[in-house]
């Protein structure tokens, strides 16, 4: 599976990373080289193997339904690059 320039642009767009036209070829070479190297995994017989989803092997603990957090809008907003009152602000989105 080899990535063409259109796929590079599509991935970049999905990942919301701006890619300039002149960067596409370099990225294509680099990503194809990594993916080509990863192809070695096709040698492994994985028939009937259950995928391992995470690092831990136990059941999930649940917490109690108690309000223990929040209530500090100033802290939540303190790092915001743009805000308006107690809202985060972004360029207008049209729905």
């Amino acid at each position: 599976m080899s990535l063409d320039p259109a796929t590079i642009r599509r991935i970049a767009s999905l990942a919301r990373i701006r890619v300039e036209e002149h960067e596409v070829e370099t990225l294509q070479t680099e990503l194809n080289s990594i993916l080509g190297w990863i192809e070695q995994l096709n040698e492994v017989n994985v028939d009937g193997v259950e995928p391992l989803t995470g690092g831990a092997r136990m059941a999930m603990k649940m917490r109690d339904d108690v309000v223990t957090d929040g209530g500090y809008p100033e802290k939540v907003l303190a790092n915001a690059p743009d805000r308006n009152g107690d809202f985060f602000a972004v360029p207008k989105v049209v729905e």
Partner: peptide
């Protein structure tokens, strides 16, 4: 399936 799922299976191995 070709990449992520396969990788998770190999991780199990």
């Amino acid at each position: 399936d070709a990449y992520y799922l396969r990788a998770q299976k190999i991780r199990a191995l």
